[in-house]
């Protein structure tokens, strides 16, 4: 938690941020990108290594989620939610990824940055690290 915010307002913002993140989590679990699209700002960016290749653009992410299909056993943990007025950072640790593209038992660390817009908190970037288990597939 960043300084300069009282506990009540932190809790309110926290709940809004986690609610937005649930869209991402549900979309991931069901393998349906339409469930997560509204969590992202239309101008959001996405960059990182997937399967050893540098991938960019939220469309890659959405296509990947749809192509991966259900990942019913994911276990997401919010390891930090930091809020500073109009900006926020969420670190999500997700174990138990599975699916056509993920393989099985894969762990991913995500850093989401969010912006508080007129339409609520929106993800503006997702950065991620696939842990080595992806090599199994």
């Amino acid at each position: 938690m960043f300084a300069g915010m009282n506990a009540a307002s932190y809790s309110n913002e926290y709940d809004s941020i986690v609610a937005a993140m649930q869209g991402y989590i549900e979309g991931s679990r069901q393998g349906r990108s339409e469930l997560m699209r509204s969590a992202f700002h239309p101008g959001a960016s996405f960059i990182g290594y997937a399967g050893g290749e540098l991938r960019q653009g939220t469309q890659f992410l959405f296509d990947w989620i749809d192509g991966n299909g259900p990942a019913p056993d994911i276990r997401p943990r919010f390891t930090s939610v930091d809020i500073l007025d109009t900006i926020a950072v969420v670190r999500l640790e997700v174990e138990g990824w599975s699916g056509k593209l993920a393989g099985s038992g894969v762990r991913m660390s995500d850093l989401f940055t969010l912006l508080k817009t007129e339409n609520g908190w929106k993800i503006v970037q997702k950065a991620f690290h696939w842990h080595a288990a992806i090599e199994r597939e």
Partner: peptide, 23 residues
């Protein structure tokens, strides 16, 4: 206040995103 996201590409850290708040 700036929050930078970085990615290590070919052994070098590069900023991929800058999130900022103007006080």
């Amino acid at each position: 206040s700036d929050v930078f996201t970085l990615l290590k590409i070919d052994g070098e850290w590069k900023i991929t995103h800058k999130l900022f708040h103007s006080h």
